[in-house]
Each structure stands twice: as C-alpha cells, then as structure tokens.
C-alpha cells in the first residue's frame, strides 16, 4: 500500500468483517493508541551483540542507564521471544547469514535498531572485503543511531525515537503494521556464502553480469572500480558542474588509458627499486 494517509477503507482489506454502514467511522485511533502503547512499553530486545557497540549496549542495560525504565530490561537470548533487534556492531558477510535467519525467526511485530556507524552504513570498516555496508542492505531498519560507538545515552535516545515512531503508527495503515495484511508475511531472503556473499534478490543482476562475462564483454566484476578522476583546481563553476554529474567523470573514456599508464609507471618504479635492491 503506497499511501501513508490514514484511510479507514483499508481496515476492510484485512480479515475483519466490518458492516458497510460502519466503514469509515470506527474508532480505530484509540485502539491504535492502546496497541501502540502496549507494544512500545514492553519492547524486549534480543540478547545479541556483534562488536564494540554491544559493550555499550550492555552498559546501557546495566545499573547506570537502566533499560528497564523503558520496559526493555528483559533481554531474550532467543529471537522467538524478542521484539527488537539491536544490531550492535559491524555486520560482516559471514555474520549477515545468521542475522537474517534470526530476523526471520522473530515474531511480528518486530523492529530493528541499527546501533552505531558500522551497522548503519559500514562505519570505519566499510572499505573492508568482509564487511557489509549497513544492515539495511538486507533488512529493514527502523532507527539508526550514529556514533562510534554511540554512548549509552545516545542509544537511549535512539530507543526513545523508536518508541515515538511506534506511537505514530496506525492500525489502519498497512504500511505501519504490515503483519496484519492478508496471508503470512514474506521472510527476508537468506544470503548465500559463495565466492562472495550472494543476495538472492540480486540473482537477475548477477546472471546478467555473468552472461556479459561469458560473452567476453566487459563487466564491472573483477575490474578495478573506476578511478575517481582527480580534478585540478578549476574555476568553481566547472567544479559545481562536475559535482552535479559524477557519473560522467566515472565514464571518462580516458580512464582506462590513465589507469594503464599509472600501472605501467608503478611497475617500472618497482622494477627500478628491485634492481636497486639487488
């Protein structure tokens, strides 16, 4: 459902048999409020830590900051009893598989809070070969808490933000509460550990790339990513134009040539050095 507007007609889309004359004037708001209140006041996080942020998460749960003031002190070690997954730390490719499985095992309603820079977008380790640049590449995230690591108070702020988000949800809007739609909800597809991580949702894209490779046509795979062209100190107008069209820079036809020349220069330098060393 695309519309975020509260449209009571959609109540009828669920399996509630609503008499025609009552459609449009049922008191859904107050029910929503009770429903939201009860959801947000007993949000049980999963006892699940990944990296550095997990230590701050435990610190938040401990005496000084005390999650129990928000009804969150019951950290369950099993996903089947938890409502909230605090992704606390760097998500690696090896770990994303269990994480998606855990998420699928959580009963709805379920929420994800990405704690820290790594879980939000890869963080300082983003460039690494085994690091997933943000949990939201695989799972829907409700709240992002920046920081490296976020202090316990920053996390608490994030949790309050999540509570506020829940407060703003409406039972009548299936975008907010998709788990009351018709039929069971789809589990998130579990990534596969092949030569690299494989997202089942990208199978088509991968296949296309593989076909290109089979035909001997250039693909982006196994190639150095485009060298970001170094722009000299040019007048600001030009700079602005370049900034507006970064794709053009990447597609510079001279790119390959420059790259080759640089590599050749590097090889020459190394040969020289080696000769010197000998």
């Amino acid at each position: 459902m695309s519309s975020k507007e509260l449209d009571l007609k959609h109540v009828h889309d669920t399996e509630f048999p609503l008499p025609a004359e009552m459609q449009g004037n049922v008191a859904v708001t107050s029910l929503s409020r009770i429903y939201n209140w009860s959801r947000r006041s007993s949000m049980w996080p999963m006892l699940f830590g990944l990296a550095c942020c997990a230590i701050e998460m435990i610190g938040t749960a401990a005496s000084r900051f005390d999650l129990s003031r928000f009804g969150m002190e019951v950290m369950r070690a099993t996903p089947r009893q938890s409502d909230l997954m605090i992704v606390s730390g760097t998500v690696t490719k090896k770990m994303i598989v269990p994480i998606v499985r855990l998420y699928n095992q959580m009963p709805e309603p379920k929420y994800i809070l990405a704690m820290g820079a790594c879980a939000s977008g890869g963080g300082p380790f983003k460039e690494g070969y085994n690091v997933v640049s943000g949990i939201d590449k695989y799972l829907p995230v409700d709240v992002y808490v920046p920081g490296c690591p976020p202090t316990p108070q920053a996390l608490l702020y994030g949790l309050i933000a999540l509570q506020k988000k829940i407060d703003g949800q409406s039972l009548a809007n299936l975008d907010d509460v998709p788990w009351y739609g018709v039929g069971p909800s789809e589990p998130a597809p579990i990534p596969i550990l092949g030569p690299d991580i494989i997202d089942p949702r990208q199978m088509d894209l991968i296949r296309r790339q593989a076909e290109l490779a089979a035909r001997g046509e250039p693909t982006y795979v196994r190639e150095l990513p485009p060298v970001v062209k170094k722009v000299k100190a040019v007048p600001s107008k030009v700079t602005k134009a370049a900034a507006a069209a970064p794709a053009e820079i990447a597609e510079d036809p001279r790119r390959e040539e420059i790259l080759k020349r640089r590599l050749a220069a590097l090889a020459r330098k190394r040969a020289r050095d080696a000769a010197k060393a000998n």
Partner: peptide
Amino acid sequence: SEEKNVFGKNVRYPADF
C-alpha cells in the same frame, strides 16, 4: 562507495563465476 558498485553492496564475483 556502494553507489559506484554494480551490486550496490560490498560484493564482487570472480571472472569465471
């Protein structure tokens, strides 16, 4: 970085994949 990557993720496949 993902904007410049085909798969939008930190993923790369070998040539003979």
